[in-house]
Amino acid sequence: MIKFTNVTKMYRKGRVHALNNVSLFIGKGEFVYVIGPTGAGKSTFIKLLYREEKATSGIVEVNGIQVNKIRNSRVPFYRRQIGVIFQDFKLLPKKTVYENIAFTLEVIGKHPRLIRKQVLSILQLVGLDDKAKAFPHELSGGQQQRVAIARAIINNPSVVIADEPTGNLDPESSKEIMNLLEEISKRGTTMIMVTHDRQMVNTFKHRTITIESGYVSNDTMGGGYNDNLQTW
């Protein structure tokens, strides 16, 4: 459950309005696209969600927690409920696939025995159980993104945020990734995906929130791109 109430985010002491009085609600297990031109405030929107940024005013609520009120020292614990996926995967190049995923569990202090079990089962889920010992550079883009997804969901987060997850991938791999994300969403995980990929939005139909110059300009159920409205 995600709830924005009159959320405004300003940068540089109020000179730049990244988000303006945004209010919206995203239910548990929903799959939502966030689209909009570059610099419209999409990144700010998701950064507020995983508390990389703090709202200037208004309330950001995730699973009943007021994100703005989380003390800095508690932020790491809050983040364990949220999985984040990036366009550039952000894998550690000197660690194997297995180590990259296990790393997530190590840093939150899981017992080494549990780590092994969990990593192997998640690798199976994303279909990479035969690549555990490979290094990221030995994998294709789609495979690397699957490792990143495995890393993002290994803690069973209630919300997964994907920042243009298919931006660097060919159409075929993009489809595979989308299928995987949909599968995860069907298990009850809220999925928020920022994208520029028209075809994707129009093929896999989901609720689509459009952000333009800091405002939510459009919010349609199963909408897809509207070529008359969204000309960017």
């Binding site: 790491p76 614990f77 983040r79 952000k90 790393f103 939150i108």
Partner: peptide, 10 residues
């Protein structure tokens, strides 16, 4: 960066 993202404490 990744540590922070996946919730490693400071």
């Amino acid at each position: 960066q990744i540590m922070r993202l996946v919730g490693a404490s400071n």
